[in-house]
Amino acid sequence: MDTKTVLLVGVGGQGTILAGDILAKTAAAEGLDVKISEIHGMSQRGGSVSTVVRFGDAVSSMVVDPGTADVIVSFELVEALRAQQFLKQGGTMFVNDEEIVPVTVAIGNATMPEDPRAQLVALDSVLVPAGKIARQANSPKSTNVVLMGALSTALPFAEDTWKDVISKRVPPKTVDANLAAFEAGRKAGRA
């Protein structure tokens, strides 16, 4: 397989790292070479965060360049717009349909973009109500797994491989909730 690039973006604390880990382990379980790169440290304190997962027969660079992401998964609307230049022509973007207002807006130093949903729909993005799905299932922390479910519809990995990795990777008590979240995400991703 030629190298594929998935870019996960969001806000520190949203669970992008676990999501990236699930994706990378799924790719590895399918017999592919994989690299997953993330930035720790200061960016974890509520700032914009990103994780890059690349997989294929042999992966070289671990970073994403503009126009090279086959798929972008954004955990938040504004962060999806912030990442738009990384999307490959014809690539797919899955976006959690939720907004987190940055402190810069609250204190009056910046303004929110006008109608980010419309801008994203114009880019053929798939808006996934991942947070809502997770909360309705009484499992708000599984938003990231809902998004992995949506992402799974754009990748050639077996559903069982995903579920196997998720079962091993999430806390034991939450396996059923996360598998349900994954399936709900798959449904939403296909919609």
Partner: peptide
């Protein structure tokens, strides 16, 4: 040649790190 891509979105609100809630 670089891959074709969208321009970076302008005027987005910055999201710098902050002291935790």
């Amino acid at each position: 040649d670089q891959p074709e891509h969208l321009d970076a979105a302008q005027d987005l609100p910055p999201r710098p790190p902050a002291l935790c809630p």
